[in-house]
C-alpha cells in the first residue's frame, strides 16, 4: 500500500469492507451511548481545518474528526485507540501512522447480530462495482463512508434529505475538480454525461444517483454501475410499477401503500413522478366518464340516424 494516496490513513483492505458497515450495525442493538472521542485527540483533530495538501494528488486531505458527529455515530462508544493502534505518542505523529491498516473485520467477524444486514452481499456487490473494477484496491469503502460519522440509524423524514445525503457522497468526488483521476467527470463533464436526461438537475435533486447506477437486485446495493450499464429507460421509473419503489422508496412503500386512494402514495408528499404517481379514483373516474360520453354519443347518433331515416321515408 502506498502512503501517497490521500486516504491512506484510513484505508482498509477490500475484503474488510462489509464488516466496517457491520461495526456500525453492531451498535444498533444497544442504545448508542453518547460519548466523545478522547480529548487529547480532539485537541488537534477537532480543528476543522486540520489537514494537508497531498503532494501527489494536489487534493486537500482533511484529518478533522467532527466530535459532534462522532458522538452520535454508530462508533460513538469506541475510543479512538480502539481502532487506531499505531504509535501516536509523537507530535506531529510519525509518518508511519499513515500506513496504519484498519480492518473492520478485525472487530466484526461472524457477528450474528449483523446477519440480517447480509454484509457478505454488501461486500460481494461492492467487489463488482465499477469503483473496484476500475480502481482496484485504491478504492475503499472509506472513500464513500466516513467511519467517524457513520450512522445507519439516522432517520430521515423527507425523501429529499435522503437524496441529498446520498448524492452528496457521489458528488464529493464526481463534481470535485480537486480530485485527481476524476478529471473526466469534472462538473461540466458530469453534466455532459447526463445531457440526455431531461430535467437533469431536477432528477439530481429528487432521486439518488444510485437509483439508476445500481442493478435492480436488492442484493446488489453496492454494485455501482458505470455509465454504459446504468439505467437509461425512462419508463423503468415512470410507470406504476416503478423501479423506485424497490429503491429510493423501498422503506416507505410498506408503511404507506395502505393509505387511501393513491398508488405510490409513498411519494405523495415529496414528488410527482409522471407515469408513477397515479390517483386510482381519478383514473377510474376518467375512464368511466370517457366510456359514458362515448355511449351517449353513440346513442344520440343512433337516434338521429333513425329519425333521419324515418323522415326520409
Amino acid at each position: 500500500m502506498s502512503a501517497k494516496t490521500p486516504h491512506a490513513i484510513r484505508r482498509p483492505r477490500r475484503w474488510a469492507i462489509a464488516p466496517c458497515v457491520a461495526g456500525a450495525f453492531a451498535l444498533l442493538a444497544a442504545a448508542p451511548a453518547l460519548a466523545e472521542p478522547a480529548p487529547e485527540c480532539v485537541r488537534c483533530h477537532g480543528m476543522s481545518t486540520l489537514g494537508y495538501q497531498d503532494r501527489a494528488s494536489g487534493a486537500v486531505v482533511s484529518l478533522h474528526v467532527d466530535a459532534d458527529a462522532y458522538s452520535t455515530s454508530n462508533h460513538a462508544d469506541l475510543d479512538c485507540v480502539a481502532c487506531h493502534k499505531a504509535q501516536y505518542g509523537d507530535y506531529p505523529h510519525a509518518d508511519a501512522v499513515r500506513d496504519e491498516d484498519l480492518h473492520c473485520l478485525d472487530c466484526h467477524t461472524d457477528d450474528e447480530r449483523l446477519a440480517r444486514f447480509k454484509l457478505d452481499e454488501v461486500g460481494e456487490s461492492f467487489a463488482r462495482s465499477v469503483h473496484v473494477t476500475r480502481h482496484g484496491d485504491a478504492f475503499t469503502c472509506f472513500d464513500c463512508h466516513d467511519a467517524h460519522a457513520f450512522d445507519i440509524a439516522r432517520d430521515r423524514d423527507q425523501v429529499a434529505d435522503v437524496v441529498l445525503d446520498s448524492n452528496a457522497i457521489c458528488l464529493n468526488c464526481h463534481q470535485s475538480t480537486e480530485t485527481v483521476g476524476m478529471a473526466a467527470l469534472a462538473p461540466t463533464a458530469l453534466d455532459v454525461a447526463h445531457a440526455w436526461l431531461p430535467n437533469a438537475s431536477l432528477h439530481r435533486r429528487h432521486v439518488r444517483c444510485l437509483d439508476c447506477h445500481t442493478p435492480d437486485d436488492p442484493a446488489a446495493s453496492h454494485e455501482i454501475l458505470a455509465a454504459e450499464d446504468a439505467r437509461r429507460a425512462c419508463v423503468d421509473c415512470h410507470t406504476a410499477d416503478s423501479a423506485l419503489l424497490t429503491k429510493l422508496y423501498r422503506h416507505r412503500v410498506r408503511e404507506e401503500r395502505t393509505r387511501a386512494g393513491f398508488i405510490n402514495a409513498t411519494v405523495f408528499n415529496d414528488a410527482y413522478i409522471i407515469g408513477m404517481t397515479r390517483n386510482v379514483a381519478l383514473d377510474r373516474a376518467s375512464v368511466a366518464a370517457f366510456v359514458a360520453a362515448l355511449t351517449l354519443i353513440a346513442a344520440h347518433a343512433a337516434a338521429r340516424w333513425r329519425a333521419t331515416r324515418k323522415a326520409g321515408r
Binding site: 488537534c44 476543522s48 494537508y52
Partner: peptide, 19 residues
C-alpha cells in the same frame, strides 16, 4: 487552499489553526 502550509513537519498543525 484551505491547507496553505505545504512545508515542514508542522504543516498539518498550522493548517489546523486556520479554523
Amino acid at each position: 487552499t484551505t491547507a496553505p502550509h505545504t512545508e515542514g513537519t508542522q504543516r498539518v498543525m498550522l493548517n489546523g489553526h486556520i479554523a
